[in-house]
Simulated scan of single mutants.
Amino acid sequence: MNLFFPEVCEACNNSLSDNELVICTNCRHQLPVTNFHFDNSEAVKKIIYGRVKLENATALLHFSKKGIVQQLLHNLKYRGHQQISGFFGKWLGAELSTTKDYRIIDVVIPVPLYKTKLRKRGYNQVTKFGIEIAKALKADYNDTVLVKTKSSTTQVFKGRLTRWNDDGALFSITERESLKGKHILLVDDIITTGATVEACASVLLKIDNIKLSLATMAIAD
């Protein structure tokens, strides 16, 4: 099969060797790793400081326009290359499982897509990322409790203050009882302004006595 359909690196499109998966060794060494969860960095938390309370927050990689991470996320979101999501999930999950702050996570919840976008794309790009992290942390994975109730395309041209007031209406929760008192890890592909995380968190934090942390594939520089 490799003779006719060779597996190639998702970043550079060169053929992968037998011991390489998804990303070649050379490209992996070029990835701008953050190490936030090892350095106790609060870079991600600062993005939404004063808006929602997070126990811990991290991102695996730095994202910059026209960079290698943008190429990978583009392949994941628009070209159906879901193996990238699982690859990042295994990577970050393995690292988080060595840190005490994340070993106490009870359940992993992905940021959901609106139903029309999910049908069009055919998958949520964060699903495999979240599943692999949940496996590594020995936590539950729940992709049904948090639901996106309307499209956010009209939000693009709104300022942060406006989104702060009404973004919570974009999401709802289907039930609360099973999550009471849990430590939830919300996962997403990238954090930029923090508006999406804020909208999800504002709904999840209505559940009694929960703690909320965040993990993303990338953080925009």
Rank of each mutant, 00 (worst) to 15 (best):
S17N: 11
S17K: 12
D18S: 08
D18K: 15
L21R: 04
L21P: 00
V22Q: 02
V22E: 09
V22G: 01
I23E: 01
I23K: 04
C24H: 01
C24W: 02
T25A: 01
T25Q: 08
N26I: 11
N26W: 02
C27T: 03
R28P: 00
R28N: 06
R28L: 09
H29P: 00
H29L: 09
Q30G: 05
Q30S: 14
Q30A: 12
L31W: 02
L31T: 07
L31Y: 02
P32F: 06
V33F: 08
T34H: 01
T34L: 06
N35W: 00
N35I: 00
F36Y: 15
F36C: 03
H37E: 09
H37S: 07
H37F: 09
H37M: 10
F38A: 10
F38C: 10
F38H: 13
D39N: 14
D39I: 03
D39M: 06
D39L: 11
N40S: 11
N40D: 11
N40R: 15
N40A: 04
S41H: 04
E42T: 15
E42W: 01
E42I: 13
E42Y: 05
A43Q: 12
A43K: 15
A43I: 12
V44G: 02
V44Y: 04
K45M: 14
K45A: 09
K46V: 04
I47S: 00
I47K: 12
I47L: 14
I48A: 00
I48M: 05
I48V: 15
Y49S: 13
Y49D: 13
Y49V: 05
G50M: 08
G50W: 11
G50I: 07
G50F: 10
R51Q: 13
R51G: 01
R51A: 05
V52L: 06
V52E: 04
V52H: 03
V52T: 10
V52R: 01
V52F: 00
K53A: 15
K53C: 13
L54K: 04
L54W: 07
L54Y: 06
L54R: 06
E55A: 13
N56M: 10
A57G: 13
A57L: 14
T58Q: 02
A59E: 04
A59R: 10
L61M: 08
L61C: 07
L61Q: 10
L61A: 07
F63N: 03
F63R: 03
F63E: 04
S64C: 04
S64M: 08
S64G: 01
S64N: 11
S64K: 15
